[in-house]
Design a protein around this nucleic acid. Structure first.
Length: 757
DNA sequence: TTTCTGTACTAATCA
DNA sequence: AGTACAGAAA
């Protein structure tokens, strides 16, 4: 068993003891992924467990792909048959198979966050509530938190605690919005991300035969990043492992950074109570980083109160001290980091792929990118706006979604007037109201539109329905790729993009081509058993941009958020934007628990580095298009100073000069800027300047209007007709107004009173 | 109904 | 710096 070589004592223990419940508490860089992969390999090779009986759950597709590859290296192609993937993807797959038990079609749609938010927006509007109070984001977070704690809308409405919470937040209607939201999702045959887990719980609760089937199937259950599971996920795994009791979880409480998604460190503590015969293994030796980095990380995490005691140590060399870079602005920060990377690369003969730049928020990537481009340093961005979130892609996907599932309300709203076909929001509202009044689906109203509406809009809708029905047939008859191509072409989207000859237009056109290629690839890939368009859509709904790395050139500097970096390692790590209100984020300052989570995030960032860590901050930064002063992050002070190199003055930096110029943090210049802005600002149009007609003002019949007539306009006041244009369907008149000058008015719209002839 | 324009508001992290 | 929305004009 040569795969067992090079494992230390506790690691070996984690690999060999495959039976019974087991929890591995693994410090950063202690080789936990290695233990997990070797454990699975051991199950297959030594214990002859059928890969089909192993369920391994991860948090990102990237992690699961990587793990599968590493297992494949040991056990060969059999690794393919392991049930390995993210919680969401695995249970979406199971729900697809069992959907009918929950009253869903197997082709249910998966709503992404945008779909959810816009649905909530619609509901708030329909209920006549104030959208300033019920912001989609806030409401969705509240609903999401409830679902992650397995609280249905019925229980939510019943529970006085939630009611009191909502009332003290001046949002008493949240429960009712939750109810409407759940109802509309169900009617749309749609599940949001949280529903995938929530409904899996419902499925296992209400259908014991189904639960039993999967309990038998998954004889071994393994969970990576266990500290990031929420209650919903925790209960699923617990239920699945209830019969065989072969459950192994791996985690590190110091790296729990997903509380905002309902993750609960308590799960680790509860785990010990749930399994009396639990074997607990601690991995504390760090193999990844230098002594200085490990010690600095420890000094940071020790500032947190809530944590399990554990000592991460290393035998590695002390290595370099941590460098702190101070810059005058975000742009300069980018420049300094770029030149620093270039120097280190040259000096130590490194590749660009040895470097990663981490930041708290995606919006910070802009200034860094700019600097890297100027310095001719190649880079790749992970995360940010994903390919599947682009407008043109979402448009096409909405067509595909709606052709498959006619109940998908959000997809319908997106495409019904795209390209423009004369069906405006007013008509859509009428349709929705009609559906509500007759208690039928929106699609049924559309199919029989002539019973509800007449005229041009009704015809447009009838044409739309005919088109969708044709698409449906296309999907039934042809494979996913051909059907999608047909829909892209015949919906008119592709043509509209093709006619747009701007650079962005060309880009969009290419993106659609790329989407079609992706479908082709999906169809051609032998590993996908279900090649239908519906399966493809469900799969990509759970994909993020992390999962698509196809670039030929791999020697690139990596840019990403700290969250994305979890589980990865690089020789050189740059953490940028070490400023108050940015990192820690200003939204995390309200409670100790929030601040501690933020600090764990910093811990994660530090421990990604193998050889050198570099932290940077800027004194000024553009936010919302305005320059803001910033202060260095309190986290810099959390590091024991003996691990930090006192920085030489940056050459080429005017940071010092800037400080001298602006001893008061640049308030003077801000004042000057405000002055300039106030001068530049155009005076706001004053409605009081508009003409006020008599209260008995009534528009005249303008069919006999002619040049030279004196008229009164409701807003522009008195004027003289200077020219008539009676050609074509739209009669126009040019009127020279006393106060507003010459205007061209469409007579079918303009309200004019004729004052003399 | 559509298009244009100015304004107000925004960016926390992921599946 | 972007974009989403409202309101005006066509």
């Amino acid at each position: 068993m040569d795969y067992l070589k090079n494992l230390n004592e506790p690691q070996l223990e984690g690999v060999m003891n495959t039976e019974g419940p087991c929890m591995i508490i693994a410090g950063a860089g202690s080789g936990k992924t290695r233990v997990l992969t070797m454990r699975i390999a051991h199950l297959i090779k030594a214990q002859e467990v059928d890969p089909f009986n192993i369920l391994a759950l991860t948090f990102t597709n990237k992690a699961s792909k990587e793990m599968r590859n590493r297992i494949e290296d040991v056990v060969g192609h059999e690794a393919r048959n392991i049930w390995m993937g993210t919680f969401h993807s695995i249970f979406a797959r199971i729900l697809r198979a069992e959907a009918s038990k929950l009253g869903y079609p197997s082709n249910f749609t998966i709503y992404d966050t945008d779909d959810s938010k816009s649905l909530i927006k619609n509901i708030v509007k329909e209920k006549g509530l104030d959208d300033k109070v019920y912001k989609p984001n806030t409401v969705l977070n509240r609903i999401s938190a409830a679902k992650n704690r397995l609280v249905s809308w019925q229980e939510y409405l019943k529970n006085p605690i939630y009611r009191a919470d909502d009332e003290s937040a001046m949002k008493p209607e949240v429960g009712n919005i939750y109810q409407a939201y759940a109802d509309r999702c169900f009617k749309a045959s749609a599940m949001d991300f949280d529903d995938l887990l929530f409904n899996t719980n419902v499925l296992f609760r209400d259908h014991l035969d189904v639960l039993n089937k999967y309990q038998q199937r998954f004889r071994y259950v393994l969970v990576d990043e266990f500290q990031d599971t929420n209650l919903s996920q925790y209960l699923i795994t617990k239920k699945l492992a209830a019969v065989n009791q072969n459950i192994c979880v791996v985690g590190d409480d110091a790296q729990s950074i997903y509380a905002f998604r309902g993750a609960d460190i308590q799960n680790i503590l509860n785990f010990e109570k749930d399994y009396v015969d639990l074997r607990v293994i601690k991995l504390e030796q760090n193999y990844r980083s230098t002594q200085n980095i490990v010690d600095a990380a420890n000094s940071v995490i020790n500032k947190n109160r809530a944590q399990l005691k554990k000592k991460v140590w290393t035998e590695n060399t002390p290595g370099e001290l941590i460098e702190v870079i101070k810059a005058s602005s975000d742009n300069e920060e980018g420049k300094l980091v770029a030149s620093n990377i270039f120097e280190e690369k040259m000096h130590h003969q490194l590749s660009y792929e040895d470097f990663a730049i981490l930041y708290r928020t995606n919006s910070q990537s802009r200034s860094i990118e700019e600097a890297l481009r100027r310095a001719n340093i190649k880079y790749k961005i992970i995360g940010g706006l994903s390919f599947y979130q682009r407008k043109e892609i979402k448009d096409i996907l909405s067509y595909l979604r709606f052709a498959i599932n006619q109940q998908d309300e959000q997809a319908l709203r997106r495409i019904i007037n795209l390209p423009k076909r004369g069906i405006g929001p007013a008509s859509v509202d009428k349709v929705v109201v009609a559906a509500y009044e007759h208690d039928i689906t929106i699609w049924e109203v559309l199919e029989n539109i002539h019973s509800f509406l007449s005229g041009r809009t009704a015809n447009a809708i009838a044409d739309f329905v005919t088109m969708i029905k044709a698409f449906k047939l296309e999907i039934e008859r042809k494979d996913a790729f051909e059907a999608a191509t047909h829909i892209a072409k015949n919906s008119g989207i592709l043509r509209e993009l093709y006619e747009d000859k701007t650079i962005e237009g060309l880009n969009r056109y290419e993106n659609v081509q790329e989407l079609l290629n992706a479908i082709k690839e999906y169809v051609d890939n032998e590993e996908n058993e279900d090649k239908s368009l519906g399966a493809f859509l469900q799969e990509i709904a759970l994909l993020t941009s992390v999962d698509q790395d196809k670039s030929e050139d791999n020697d690139l500097v990596t840019l990403m958020t700290i969250h994305m970096a979890k589980g990865l390692e690089f020789k050189y790590i740059y953490v940028v934007g070490m400023e108050e209100d940015l990192f820690p984020s200003q939204m995390m300052l309200s409670s100790r628990a929030d601040l501690e989570e933020e600090r764990r995030l910093f811990y994660v960032a530090i421990t990604r580095a193998k050889i050198k860590l570099c932290l940077s901050y800027a004194l000024n930064r553009y936010r919302f298009g305005r320059l803001k002063n910033c202060e260095p992050s309190r986290f810099l002070e959390d590091i024991d100073p003996k691990y930090i190199k006192v920085n030489r003055l940056q050459k080429g930096s005017d940071a010092l000069a800037f400080d001298q110029l602006n001893p008061n943090h640049g308030t003077g210049s801000q004042y000057a800027r405000n002055l300039v802005n106030s001068v530049r600002k155009k005076p706001a149009p004053n409605p009081q300047h508009y003409h006020k007609p008599d209260k008995d003002f009534a528009p005249s019949d303008t069919s006999g209007l002619a040049e030279g007539m004196k008229v009164e306009h409701a807003k522009f006041g008195f004027g003289v007709v200077t020219m008539m244009d009676n050609l074509g369907a739209n009669k126009k008149a040019k009127v020279n107004f006393e106060k507003f000058g010459e205007k061209t008015l469409l007579l079918s719209f303009a309200k004019l009173k004729i004052h003399d002839s």
